[in-house]
């Protein structure tokens, strides 16, 4: 295990907020083969807050998100250097088991991707996988709790056995959120969770994010600056593989320090 203190001594705290950060990224560089897509990212993610990663297409924000729960491991040509720490533990350490890591860092994908199983099975899968429930009643209770937290219980409680793929797009995405929170992770990564949804379903998800941040640390990648402004407490702006600016959402949007940030949020680039 890498000593957290040494890292913090070398690099000063890049984002200003109170309390210890949940996730700390230092000098993170990512390349696909010869092409480097992220350059020296230094970012702190606050605990139980919503952090939005914004930026134009291809700026590397999704790549950075997928580094946190090591989903990039699936791509053989992807190379990650630097350190990413969660609760002062290096997630790229040789002893790290990715299954344990992903048990603590859940993920919601761009397109709703429920399993082609029943609604109940979708939520119960992760619980059963990690052996979190004691018996059937406990499992039922956990499934209900997750669905309630995702704000889906009232809509599906009478048809838990029907396929999850039969729900509407917004419901499917909330089912995916229920599936992610069912295993009680610390962090939830959301990769443009509303890009495939209509405005009403989007509003529903955003509301949900607001409720969830009391319990979870949320990192959300979004294309929409309005969405970032609405849901996030902190924002990090990526541009061409660089982390240009980061800070409290309100300040970043009203008073950007960097010219590129200003151009992007006023709609001149992106």
């Amino acid at each position: 295990m890498v000593n957290l203190m040494t890292v913090q001594q070398v690099v000063s705290k890049p984002m200003a907020f109170d309390g210890t950060p949940k996730i700390i990224a230092r000098d993170v560089c990512v390349s696909y083969g010869d092409r480097q897509v992220l350059h020296n990212i230094n970012l702190d993610i606050p605990q139980r807050r919503v952090t939005a990663l914004i930026g134009p297409s291809g700026c590397g924000k999704t790549t950075f998100l997928r580094c946190i729960n090591r989903m990039n491991d699936l791509i053989s040509i992807c190379k990650v250097t630097g350190t990413i720490m969660m609760d002062s533990a290096d997630v790229y350490h040789a002893d790290v088991d990715v299954e344990v890591l992903r048990r603590r860092i859940g993920m919601v994908f761009q397109k709703p991707n429920p399993f082609p199983k029943s609604i109940y099975e979708n939520v119960a899968y992760g619980i059963k996988l990690h052996g979190l429930s004691i018996d059937k009643a406990d499992l039922d209770a956990r499934v209900e709790k997750s669905l309630r937290r995702a704000g889906l219980w009232d809509e599906v409680s009478d048809r838990l056995d029907s396929p999850g793929t039969g729900l509407s797009g917004g419901q499917q995405q909330r089912l995916c959120i229920a599936r992610a929170i069912a295993i009680e992770p610390d962090v939830i990564l959301m990769d443009e969770p509303c890009s495939a949804l209509d405005p009403i379903a989007t509003a529903r998800i955003e509301e949900l994010i607001h409720e969830l941040k009391e319990k979870f640390t949320i990192i959300i990648v979004t294309h929409s600056m309005q969405q970032a402004a609405r849901v996030s407490d902190y924002t990090a702006f990526f541009h061409l593989g660089d982390l240009v600016e980061q800070g409290e959402t309100e300040i970043l949007f009203t008073n950007p320090k960097d010219e590129r940030t200003e151009s992007y949020i006023t709609g001149r680039i992106g």
Binding site: M71, R103, G106, L129, I183
Partner: peptide
């Protein structure tokens, strides 16, 4: 099989073998 299904399983901490055999 859409890769998103396997990703979903991996994302909640299933191993590669589990993702393949379960989904």
């Amino acid at each position: 099989v859409p890769p998103s299904i396997k990703e979903a399983a991996l994302g909640i901490g299933a191993s590669h073998v589990q993702a393949v055999f379960h989904h």
